[in-house]
Design a binder for these strands. Sequence first.
DNA 1: TCAATTATGTACCGAACGGTACAAAATAAC
DNA 2: GTTATTTTGTACCGTTCGGTACATAATTGA
Lengths: 207, 207
Amino acid sequence: MSVGRKRSFDKSEALDKAMRLFWENGYSGTSVSDLTEQLGINKPSLYSAFGNKEKLFQSALERYMACYAAPLLEQLTTPDEQPLAERIRHYMSNIIELVSDKTSPKGCLFVKSSCEAGGTGVPEEVTQALQSMGLATRQVLSSLFEQEQSRGRLPATAEPKVMADYLMSVLYGISVLARQGRRKDELITAAEFAISGLLPSQTSHEH
Amino acid sequence: MSVGRKRSFDKSEALDKAMRLFWENGYSGTSVSDLTEQLGINKPSLYSAFGNKEKLFQSALERYMACYAAPLLEQLTTPDEQPLAERIRHYMSNIIELVSDKTSPKGCLFVKSSCEAGGTGVPEEVTQALQSMGLATRQVLSSLFEQEQSRGRLPATAEPKVMADYLMSVLYGISVLARQGRRKDELITAAEFAISGLLPSQTSHEH
DNA sequence: TCAATTATGTACCGAACGGTACAAAATAAC
DNA sequence: GTTATTTTGTACCGTTCGGTACATAATTGA
């Protein structure tokens, strides 16, 4: 066992609270005092456990991607009996649930952070991390479409990278709409419309 | 003529510079000192001319919408010989030009601000103003589709509001992609793909 | 029991925050 | 030229910023 006084708070719970604060108020909009207040710990504890504000944000962002974004993406790319259109529908449905959830801040932390990044208020490393995350997601989606194409489930003329960019733009846009306070059912119908244009499906938006 | 010492700077130029600063760094990420420095004026002049930081931001946002967003939207909705798909293509092309312009900050100030809003870092009035602007844009787009529908240029089964939400989500998403540093040609192909799903067109993405 | 180690609480650091008081400078009306 | 009015520059306000020094409390190994 390690020596010394034991930490009086759950580090994982604290990170979760920090993530939600950044999610709600952004990097510049969240002060260290906000964090210590909400996490119920004092500054030395926070700095000892998480380094500094920037590192804490990085950790919160990684936690967000690992706990929210990655599982949904993994479910989408895991081989499945269902047709691609149906899996994408579920994927988008999950995303919409996430960005319009009543128990969490509206929108997507990743999208919010991407928009905030690039300026002087956000450290350069954070901006670059966000950029890589976006490109990685694109790669995963693109590979999925390539795979489907190689198995003959997509036309040979389909362009996986374009489809990935298109899907991401719709998802990003939906999370912005969610942040603007739009209702979940509006997001769902918009997503259904997007799918019907993306892929042939038995349940198109024409009815 | 009015009495008193004359203002030594161009208020319109100053507002333009302020707009670009907010566009680059956001509301929380832009300090009053950043503003006075970049605008080349001192604080009393700034406060005398624009009220305070919040009012200056509101003015900058209104300027952005009036100078960038509104003209494009007006061009789209102005009756035209061209088919709707072609006009939307031009509209999206203009938006992409705007959000990936080399002489301006990447992305869209409105989208960026919408994502930043909703938290404690952004005044409540600003959040509400952004929300109304989004709903107003939706109304304009929705009316356009309704009008096209009533003239028989869209199927009777088309849903204008859904189409408007869909178009906005794609445009919002594209501006997030632009903020992430994605290349203009990628945005264009994604937009073309989106149009081909939105409307029948003589130049679909299949080739 | 006692030393070594780690976390906590308080109190503070210099810097930057948004905003303003005040006097000097500039302009127009008289 | 004087006066009234407006802007400018400087210097400052109280507060909050991110971050830390330091003493104390708690825990384990010896």
